[in-house]
């Protein structure tokens, strides 16, 4: 019952975006709304090929706040990941989630940007200081750790 009510009050834009996410998912990304809360999405992103996250399946959660699309979605990783722009609680440092957000962006563009961030870690704008330092001083070893974490935490879930 409450689900139906929630749905009928959901802005048309969110309904449209959700339908398209389900009918034409972006490669390597799935996002589906939870039954109790249609603003709350379960997300999976496959680790991009040729990145240390290849072979991993990463779980995320995404929430569309009341102000959406005037405010950015809130997104975080639930799967542990070794990445200079993602902290221990899975929070993500990405400009479009903060000051570079624009209502022209969508859930899909946000998730594609996160997928791209996995391919191109940016240790010069770190959220996880230690990991960024590791990345800058010994990239090969940092990448090896990221691979190891992918194997430990992001496979077979």
């Amino acid at each position: 019952m409450s689900g139906t009510t929630a749905n009928s009050n959901l802005p048309r834009r969110i309904i449209k975006e959700t339908q398209r996410l389900l009918s034409e998912p972006a490669p390597g990304i799935s996002a589906s709304p939870s039954e109790e809360n249609l603003r709350y999405f379960n997300v999976m992103i496959l680790g991009p090929t040729q990145s240390p996250y290849e072979g991993g399946v990463f779980k995320l959660e995404l929430f569309l706040p009341e102000e959406y699309p005037m405010a950015a979605p809130k997104v975080r990783f639930l799967t542990k990941i070794y990445h200079p722009n993602i902290d221990k609680l899975g929070r993500i440092c990405l400009d479009i989630l903060k000051d570079k957000w624009s209502p022209a962006l969508q859930i899909r563009t946000v998730l594609l940007s996160i997928q791209a961030l996995l391919s191109a870690p940016n240790p010069d704008d770190p959220l996880a200081e230690n990991i960024a330092k590791h990345w800058k001083t010994d990239e090969a070893q940092a990448v090896a750790t990221a691979r190891e974490w992918t194997r430990l935490y992001a496979t077979g879930a």
């Binding site: 009510t5 929630a6 809360n37 709350y40 929430f63 706040p65």
Partner: peptide, 11 residues
Amino acid sequence: SGSPVIVPRNF
């Protein structure tokens, strides 16, 4: 005015 927006636990 419709149902309120529920902020999920983790957020």
